[in-house]
Design a protein around this nucleic acid. Structure first.
Lengths: 174, 174
DNA sequence: CTCTTTGCAAATCTTTTGCACAAAA
DNA sequence: TTTTGTGCAAAAGATTTGCAAAGAG
């Protein structure tokens, strides 16, 4: 869970028999410059790179994020959205967890450092080496509750908070 | 997070405008009779039903587990295996969390009731209604570490603990 | 030079969906 | 009766893979 630079990434890769490439450096850079709280799917990461006028094939994107997650550089998030999202696996005090509305995927982050402590305790007990820990709290958001969840809501109903978030993301990516 | 019977499931479904069916009852029954610590993917659930000489279409399986997860009856787990797994969403004191090895998917359960408390606190603060909370600890298991993870291990290497688990599952399902 | 990585296109795998029929309420 | 649920087959997505060429150490 360190803060990587291009050269420390190279060192880490080489120490494991892997190689530094412009693609991997670029991907690290994108995540490091992502507005706080954002996370990207493979497709979205691909789009961000394209928008900069650069290009990395989608296969390489998939291969890279998986590798970087295995290395502990990225966190692989499953936030009930049907595809994986990635974000930097940041050290304390930026490490955080998620509350997700299962109706509309509205997601909020929260910090709670005791979670990591509990996870470490469990790992130590069993001899496992911790890479990352994620507490995901599945919930119904206040707006969905107000609208009469569950029976009164169509499956694809989405709260206004999420809709406005989506609009904001158009501009804020990088 | 209650312990359902066929008739309480029916009541719960009806109260939301949904209907009780033999398929839904059967699925609940399979999960209730699953050995402790097991969880099933949609495919696996389908196989278990078939093995009993009964039959539910795969579409219905997918539709049912999703519905039951939305109702809070099942938990939808993402244990780094590429597809979702389901298990009963059990109340205290059976509620638990998972430590997963990202190399071989070796999974162990652990209980830690403070996690739920922290999640509830966070929900209350934001006005969200808690359905479930899951702490997933991504790790490298002791055996993979011993074998020289990461560089010395092929991507698909799997520890013996998991291989023997898989063999045991053949018999123990139901 | 050798071995890893990339890009492309095709393949795979999981999950979803349209529709006609069956079945709860 | 009306409306929801099921089964089937086809579609849709997301992710992976084989292979030849490019590139890192």
């Amino acid at each position: 869970m360190a803060n990587y630079t291009a050269s420390s990434l190279k060192a880490e890769l080489n120490s494991r028999g892997w190689r530094m490439t412009p693609q991997r450096e670029k991907i690290l850079h994108v995540f490091q410059n992502l507005p706080k709280g954002n996370h990207l799917s493979a497709e979205e990461l691909h789009a961000v790179v394209e928008k900069r006028g650069e290009s990395i094939s989608l296969s390489t994107i998939y291969r890279s994020v998986k590798l970087m997650a295995r290395m502990g550089i990225l966190r692989e998030l499953e936030l009930a959205e049907g595809h994986k999202h990635y974000e930097l696996n940041q050290p304390y005090p930026h490490h955080h967890h998620h509350v997700v509305c299962i109706q509309c995927n509205n997601t909020i982050e929260f910090r709670d450092d005791t979670i990591l402590k509990h996870s470490l305790k469990q790992c130590k007990k069993e001899g496992f080496q911790l890479i990352d820990c994620q507490l995901t709290v599945m919930t119904i958001c206040p707006e969905a509750l107000r609208m009469g969840w569950p029976s009164a809501l169509p499956t694809d109903w989405c709260c206004t908070r999420v809709i406005s978030q989506k609009e904001t993301e158009q501009d804020s990516q990088e």
